[in-house]
Structure formats: structure tokens, C-alpha cells
Simulated assay, not measured.
Amino acid sequence: MLYLAKILVGLVAVEHVYILWLEMFAWTTRGPKTFRSLPKHIFEPTKVLAANQGLYNGFLAAGLIWSLLISDPVWSANVAYFFLGCVVVAGIYCALTAQKSIFFVQALPAILALLAVWAAH
């Protein structure tokens, strides 16, 4: 179960590295293809806002990666709980306020990882 937990935490981290890249570096090029429900004309004026949001996703990814590098199992699990909890809360909030599919793309994988970490410890 520990290996499954680490794999799931790693996948959530990789997802947030991708979101960082998308929002910080590809917002005006790849963003309109990813977020088709948004009008294309808003991507350029919201570039700085998206970059700021991407930075926060990078912090989430960094925390999850950090949790994988901690050798003490209790400390590693606690750090993973915190950052996965942040992802779950953000995913639920975004699903309620922006786009329902974000629950399945962001919150659900984090919930599964959180459950796997809990089961492993």
C-alpha cells in the first residue's frame, strides 16, 4: 500500500507541475485549447493572474514532492496529508465555483492519494 500511496502522491504532484506550466508559461497558447468554455479574448488580459495561480500550483507540487523525499514515515505522511488536503479543498472550491469537472480532474485524485497515504500508515 505504501508504494501505491507514493505513486498516487507523485501523480498528483506531476499534475500540478503540468498546471504550473500551463498557467505560467502556456496560458495564451495552450490555455484556450484546454479551457474551451472561456472566450479566447480573455487569455491575454488574464496572463498575469493565471501565472500567479500557476505559482500556487507549483507550491502544491513542491510540497507533495517534498513529502516523497522525507525518510521519516510519520513526518512524510503528515506533509502529504497537508498538501493533499490543500489540493482537495482547492479542487472542491473550483468545482463549486468555476467548473464541475475540476472535481474529477483535481480533487478526486488527491482524495484517492490521501486515502492511500492514510491506509499505508
Rank of each mutant, 00 (worst) to 15 (best):
R36Q: 12
E44W: 01
P39L: 00
A61F: 02
P32V: 06
L49V: 14
N52Y: 14
L22T: 08
M24C: 14
E15S: 10
G10Q: 05
G10V: 12
V9H: 01
G31S: 07
M24K: 09
S37F: 14
K40C: 00
R36C: 02
D72P: 07
L20M: 11
V12K: 05
L55R: 13
F59E: 00
A51N: 03
P45M: 11
A62Q: 08
K40N: 05
D72C: 07
F59T: 04
P45I: 10
A62S: 12
P32K: 07
P39S: 07
R30P: 00
H41D: 15
Q53T: 11
T28S: 06
P39R: 13
S71D: 15
Y56S: 13
R30A: 13
A62N: 06
L68W: 11
P45H: 13
F59R: 01
T29K: 11
H16V: 01
I42W: 11
L38I: 03
T28G: 00
L64H: 09
R30F: 11
W66T: 15
T28W: 03
L69C: 15
L11H: 03
A13C: 09
L55P: 02
L60E: 03
A61N: 07
I70P: 10
R30D: 04
S37W: 09
F35N: 08
I19T: 10
G54Q: 04
Y18G: 03
A26F: 05
V17D: 05
K40R: 14
I65V: 15
P39N: 06
F25I: 01
L68Y: 04
T34S: 11
I70H: 08
L68D: 12
G10M: 12
T28P: 00
Y18R: 09
Y18S: 02
L49N: 12
I65N: 10
L38A: 08
L64Y: 10
W66I: 13
N57D: 13
K40D: 12
T34G: 03
V9R: 02
T29M: 01
N52F: 11
